[in-house]
């Protein structure tokens, strides 16, 4: 049986129904990421507008999309658009939690190229459960430790401990690979 083209292929071909399908699949995710970042800052209308910007940007950059990275790419656009929106609103937007302030370790400068991103992805991939899920929820979907604790029914302190352990793991692994951190 002939297979239906993948979403990314259809999107690259500027197939409008592909975008519709993507929106059906990812709108809740996109609005959730936006909400998690812009909590208490963005109004419902702001979130909707940012979500629209996200999908329109995706449509314009369809040539950069493939199925494997689609979800991550959408999350990435949503995050960037959210910060843009918040900047535009000239409001304070830092969503800090206590462990972030205490730990100067940041992954952002390292995510500058595909190789590093993939290495970090693989490190996270290799983590046991529930650590991996906690990391993904926290860093990729911007859920708070309190939310993660509630949703996964895991002690909040445990969540924090595991995040700290994950950071340590990533740091050590990257240093072993010659990264200067």
């Amino acid at each position: 049986m002939k297979q239906k083209k993948s979403l990314s292929k259809r999107l690259r071909a500027k197939d409008e129904t592909a975008l519709e399908d993507i929106m059906s699949q990812y709108t809740r995710l996109v609005t959730s990421v936006i909400y998690n970042i812009g909590k208490n800052i963005l109004s419902r209308e702001d979130i909707e507008e940012t979500a629209m910007d996200t999908f329109i940007t995706l449509w314009k950059n369809a040539d950069k999309v493939n199925d494997e990275t689609l979800q991550g790419y959408i999350c990435c656009i949503a995050k960037t658009k959210t910060f843009d929106k918040i900047d535009k609103l000239k409001r304070t937007y830092l969503n800090c939690s206590e462990e972030d302030i205490e730990d100067p370790f940041t992954l952002e400068p390292m995510i500058e190229d595909k190789i590093t991103a993939e290495i970090i992805g693989n490190i996270i991939e290799a983590m046991p459960q529930p650590d991996k899920e906690i990391v993904i929820r926290y860093y990729y979907y911007h859920q708070t430790t309190a939310d993660i604790s509630l949703l996964m029914d895991i002690n909040r302190q445990t969540v924090k401990t595991k995040l700290a352990k994950a950071r340590k793991t990533i740091r050590n692994d990257l240093m072993k690979r010659g990264y200067d951190l």
Partner: peptide, 30 residues
């Protein structure tokens, strides 16, 4: 500032096949 590891355009999400996406979503009124 919250640490984000999906700033790259090459970013991909490590899979958690058992993750319940319903728990990722929140009710933000949109």
């Amino acid at each position: 500032m919250k640490k984000n590891i999906f700033d790259s355009k090459y970013f991909f999400i490590p899979s958690v096949n058992d993750i319940d996406m319903a728990t990722i979503y929140n009710d933000n009124g949109t």
